[in-house]
Design a binder for these strands. Structure first.
Length: 455
DNA sequence: AACAGCGCCAACCGCCACGAG
DNA sequence: GCTCGTGGCGGTTGGCGCTGT
């Protein structure tokens, strides 16, 4: 079957003399479908995305709860904008919990590349995808990172290397629904604000423990101040404490009843942006008084607020209980002895209070040429000519090495040849016979990898 | 009315520390 | 001592609404 499909691919190429990505994709899907039918424990997955954390996310297949097979296959299209000249990569994938079967359709769409990967090869897989993605036209692959970002609220199937085997799970992301909040609140009432990961393991919510915790801490926790701006006093506290502790938002937030670290962080971030803009547009700080206030209700950042006496601050850890544990106590807690809290008059003394150097400006990331490929992949690239290595990947089945299954811990589910007994046994395909069939100029269509600086 | 700029905010991500096994 | 899971934290991003032009 594998041979037949490859022959079809070649026929298509010879007929059209050009790249037809859809034909190539259709062939790959067909092949994958056959694999799935033959091995019922296989399920077609969505497109593969590289994650710097080492995870491989397969997205698309989880977009609907009970997807039809065709929908699943459609989800297998790589998230790549259709580009001209067929310079794009698409992939379909399947998994049985132990293995990951991938079909990559490269810029020469008729050439699809089935890969059989075990879970410990996922980092390599990521880089394979990057290689193929990078072969696309620069216009369509100028920013690979943006393509890996999911839309909020989408579901994805996460295949985590750290997990036992290749466990499939659905994780919901994006805005929380009221029902989800209810479930979370119930859980916290019952068990307390802990054991977040059990919420998912019990099947209560399709959210990660981190997500649950964040939702509780930032939104559902009682006594939070929702929707009210920071008061002048709160602003002063934040400014003072930031000067004292730096960007320790969680610590600062413990001095502000009803405020979360996220609140403080957002407040500070907005303030910094505002400051940067003021300094940028007004030239000299003293002239910035002329800048009209956009929002009449907005509290000016550098307004005069009463100067408090520098309180005594105990550095003992016992006092680092949060206001949530004992709000009254925190409310009465004296401020630490801070930098002199004299606020400047207008912006004239801005520099002394808010040094220019502390205002963050966008930083240009340093390009790291070696960052894109993991050490495993460097090894992979170095061994692409190694027939043994190819056989392990399931790409080749060299006669001298025998059945590729001998290199596999499990049954040769995805072996392109032995996996399809009927046709493959009579038409053994080796890398040589496979590539000999293709025209000699076919690889001329593959663009060289752009240097990282061009990405 | 349409559009752009901006601020706010919720949520995500990566990194790290810590504890259990 | 090592690995792994979990939670905490800080940085970042995208959506949305408001405001000014």
């Amino acid at each position: 079957m594998y041979f037949l499909i490859q022959s079809l691919s070649l026929w298509e190429y010879k007929q059209s003399g050009s790249c037809n990505k859809w034909f190539g994709l259709a062939i790959a899907v067909l092949w994958l479908l056959i694999q799935c039918l033959e091995h019922r424990n296989l399920t077609i997955a969505g497109c593969i995305e590289e994650q710097p954390s080492g995870k491989v996310e397969i997205e698309g297949a989880g977009s609907c709860k009970e997807p039809s097979l065709s929908a699943r296959i459609a989800g297998g299209l790589a998230e790549s904008p259709v580009s001209d000249e067929g310079h794009e990569a698409a992939c379909v994938a399947a998994s049985d919990g132990k293995h990951l079967l991938v079909c990559v359709i490269n810029s020469l769409a008729f050439l699809f590349l089935p890969l059989c990967l075990y879970i410990n090869c996922k980092a390599v897989l990521c880089d394979i995808m990057l290689i193929y993605l990078s072969q696309r036209k620069r216009s369509s692959s100028s920013n690979i990172k943006t393509q890996t970002r999911r839309k909020k609220g989408s579901k994805c199937l996460v295949f985590d290397r750290k997990m036992e085997g290749f466990k499939k799970e659905e994780i919901r992301k994006g805005p929380w629904k009221a029902e989800e909040d209810e479930v979370l609140i119930k859980h916290v009432k019952k068990y307390g604000p802990r054991d977040w990961s059990s919420i998912r393991s019990k099947g209560l919510l399709q959210r990660t423990g981190k997500s649950c915790r964040l939702r509780w801490v930032n939104k559902l926790r009682p006594n939070l101040k929702h929707g009210c701006k920071f008061s002048a006093e709160e602003e002063r506290v934040v400014i003072d404490l930031q000067a004292e502790f730096g960007n320790k938002w969680a610590r600062i937030a413990t001095y502000l009843p009803g405020r979360t670290d996220n609140d403080v962080k957002n407040f500070w971030s907005s303030r910094q942006k505002r400051l940067a803009r003021i300094l940028q547009t007004s030239g000299t700080p003293s002239s910035s008084n002329s800048k009209p206030q956009k929002n009449k209700n907005e509290v000016p950042v550098f307004q005069d607020v009463p100067t408090l006496e520098a309180p005594v601050f105990s550095s003992s850890m016992e006092e680092e209980t949060t206001y949530f544990d004992n709000p009254e106590q925190i409310r009465m807690m004296p401020l630490p002895s801070l930098v002199k809290t004299e606020l400047p008059d207008g912006y004239a003394n801005l520099g002394q209070y808010e040094p220019l150097s502390t205002i963050p400006f966008p930083q240009i990331p340093q390009l790291q040429p070696d960052l894109l490929f993991s050490p495993e992949s460097h090894e992979l690239l170095a061994r692409l000519d190694d027939p043994y290595f190819l056989s392990v990947l399931g790409i080749a089945d060299t006669p001298e090495l025998g059945d590729a299954a001998q290199f596999s811990p499990g049954p040769p589910l995805f072996d392109p040849v032995s996996g399809c007994e009927n046709s493959a046994t009579t038409n053994p395909v080796t890398p040589d016979t496979l590539f000999d069939e293709f025209p000699s100029d076919m690889f001329d269509h593959i663009e060289p990898l752009p240097s990282p600086s061009e990405w």
